[in-house]
Design a protein around this nucleic acid. Structure first.
Lengths: 141, 141
DNA sequence: GTTCAGATGATTAAGATTCTCATTTCTATT
DNA sequence: AATAGAAATGAGAATCTTAATCATCTGAAC
């Protein structure tokens, strides 16, 4: 049961938190904006305010349950934390977000930081391009 | 003379544009927010509106004169385009921004994108850490 | 120096996110 | 199960950054 995640994170189990967690767990799209989550809640008949969605997501982030990503564009997106760290590729055409992890890049980042006299704590890497997937509805000819 | 840069970029040479370009060229900090540039203008006695600063920076970006960076935090920062592409390291403590370029990372990014069926067009990479510079005023003990 | 397109400044507007505060909901305890 | 107290919620206001509007001003060309 998902309520365990909430309890483990030290968060009181409430209906809004459960519903939001459920959406993050079951949605097709793994990367959702607060607005998108809010709309899904409305669609499923929940009366949960947008402010609560933002508040809960911020708490989830602090608790390590979700990651917040700042892609190009103004809205942040949130994804469920599923263990491993990874970076992202975003399609400029269709907006699809894919995940990847590259050991070489990770290692070089640490080395470069060290060379510059930094103790690296975190990083943000997003690649932007056009996906060549034949299923992409916006694929350029 | 700097007016050449403006003319070459196809922009009419006006006082606000010259002053903003001058600040970007001469400021100690190579990465400035629109707000910071606006304040420098006020401090030097120029009566230039904030809206103009944003407008001009957007034009400079479109003309390839400056780059706009979205670091953590809400304000974008702008830096003069000085030829080569590079990525950034930001100090979590003092906010200092350093630049770096790593051939290996660049190459791997293309390869990774290709493996995922993307034709990469752009990327954003920012490393966050603590700078170990003894001159850093916020250096942790 | 006049003209006129383009630029500017002040203000308003827009979008995303956070804050406020009265009301409601959990959890622990009877 | 009833209750009390702390924490969470919802609605709307507030904030912050950036962009749009529009009347006025400026720079380049004649």
């Amino acid at each position: 049961m998902e309520t365990n995640n909430l309890k483990k994170a030290g968060l009181k189990v409430t209906l809004p938190r459960m519903k939001i967690l459920e959406i993050l767990e079951t949605s097709e799209t793994r990367h959702l904006s607060a607005e998108a989550i809010y709309r899904e809640l409305l669609d499923s008949g929940e009366e949960i305010g947008l402010a609560t969605v933002y508040r809960v997501l911020t708490q989830f982030e602090a608790a390590g349950l979700v990651c917040r990503l700042h892609l190009e564009g103004n809205q942040a997106v949130f994804e469920l934390e599923r263990g491993g760290h990874h970076d992202h590729i975003v399609c400029n055409q269709c907006g699809r977000v894919e995940e990847f992890f590259d050991e070489t890049i990770e290692r070089r980042q640490s080395e470069v930081a060290q060379q510059h006299g930094f103790s690296i704590k975190d990083h943000a890497l997003v690649l932007y391009g056009d996906c060549l997937d034949s299923a992409c509805p916006y694929r350029p000819a």
